[in-house]
Nucleic acid binder design. Structure first.
Length: 379
DNA sequence: TACCCGTGGAC
DNA sequence: TGTCCAAGGGT
């Protein structure tokens, strides 16, 4: 690992910030230092590219201009505004924290990274980002960019996939952060990490800080950062039920024990949940359908007859799971009573006003493409 | 600690 | 088309 002198640190700050002042990106959340603006942008930017975030950020600020507006927003409106951004707990945590600010902090922001950590959804990185950008605290903001940039500049070979490695980087970066302009320093590192010092196709030869880049000097840029690979997502087979009636489609809202909490889908049943201990034979499509029909009758008093939809299962990949959804269709001639079923009938024309996860959109597209072109047509 | 949590872009 | 990557946090 490289070790910089105090003189080198001074030169690095000056070079970096001069470049940032000249070529830093003009982004909507950089127009001021309002902590609400910084906060919302930082949450949206977690594991999400800048160009994806921009339209969401602009719409979010139009819908929820202040912390108080966010705290009071109906959850379904919030989830709709977040639809498509992914990692949906971010949205619900954002509102929880907004309510913490209103209720516990009387609307007055905590101004240090250590205090900001108390807000739901704000971790070490986001706390450092808000504290430095909005409040001028001299702290690092160690995200993927900081890992990548400093691992290359200083030849740090610690595995950034390990949680404990963040502490090492915080200790290394802390004395390098510009004490006069900590927010600009941290944002400059991010801009560097998304331009000349990217993960792939980096261009260290033209980087404004190439003179400080040990990995460039020693021709080993591609070796940094060191990061162990994530395991591949495991296949998870599902049945997706398209139950129609004159009242529309049967839809369910996912509960807090499930991923995609608060979003609406067709009824989805994991195939593994249909295993019957009394069965001696392995499950087949026919036996699973029989189980499903029986469950709807006995548990929900809903008589349905399920028919497989032709075609391969709808596939949707998450970070740790690969869903493979077989669609089964049941058409009811009248809108059955849903007293015993935790769902509701939704008219085809209004389905798309609900917050829907991507997998639900895929299911609807598949249904339309398999002989139901008029389904879900808006107005 | 190790694992869970979404989506779209780039190659 | 599969794979990796992108301004992480919660549990």
């Amino acid at each position: 690992m490289e070790k910089w002198s105090t003189a080198t640190i001074r030169e690095f700050r000056q070079t970096l910030l001069a470049w940032y002042d000249r070529e830093g990106r003009d982004l909507p959340w950089r127009h001021d230092q309002d902590p609400y603006h910084v906060w919302v942008s930082e949450i949206m930017l977690q594991q999400t590219q800048v160009q994806t975030v921009i339209p969401y950020y602009l719409n979010f600020m139009a819908m929820f201009p202040t912390v108080a507006d966010l705290a009071q927003a109906p959850e379904e409106q919030l989830l709709k505004a977040w639809q498509g951004l992914g990692y949906y707990s971010r949205a619900r945590n954002l509102q929880r924290a907004a309510r913490q600010l209103v209720d516990d902090y009387r609307g007055k922001w905590p101004q240090t990274a250590a205090e900001l950590l108390d807000l739901t959804g704000i971790g070490p990185y986001t706390a450092g980002a808000i504290a430095s950008i909005a409040f001028g605290e001299v702290v690092p903001a160690v995200d993927g960019n900081a890992f990548r940039v400093f691992s290359r500049l200083l030849l740090i070979d610690a595995d950034i996939a390990k949680p404990q490695t963040r502490k090492l980087f915080e200790q290394v970066i802390q004395p390098i952060v510009d004490p006069q302009r900590p927010g600009a320093f941290n944002q400059a590192i991010m801009d560097l990490g998304s331009s000349y010092m990217t993960a792939k196709n980096s261009d260290p030869a033209h980087s404004p800080v190439r003179a400080f880049d040990a990995s460039y000097r020693e021709n080993c840029v591609a070796d940094f950062p060191v990061k162990t690979k994530a395991p591949r997502p495991r296949p998870v087979p599902y049945y997706g039920l398209i139950v129609t009636s004159p009242a529309g489609y049967l839809m369910v809202q996912r509960d807090a024990t499930q991923m995609l909490t608060g979003y609406w889908t067709f009824p989805l049943i994991q195939q593994a949940d249909l295993q019957d201990a009394t069965d001696q034979q392995p499950a087949t499509l026919q036996t699973d359908i029989a189980h499903l029909e029986q469950r709807f009758m006995t548990d929900y008093q809903l008589p349905i007859t399920l028919t497989p939809l032709s075609g391969q299962p709808v596939s949707h990949t998450y970070t740790h799971q690969r869903w493979q959804v077989k669609l089964l269709v049941a058409e009811l001639s009248s809108a059955a009573d849903l007293t015993f079923y935790p769902g509701k009938w939704v008219a085809a024309s209004t389905i798309k006003t609900l917050p829907l996860p991507k997998v639900q959109e895929k299911l609807m597209t598949r249904y339309q493409n398999q002989g139901h072109p008029a389904a879900f047509k808006q107005n």
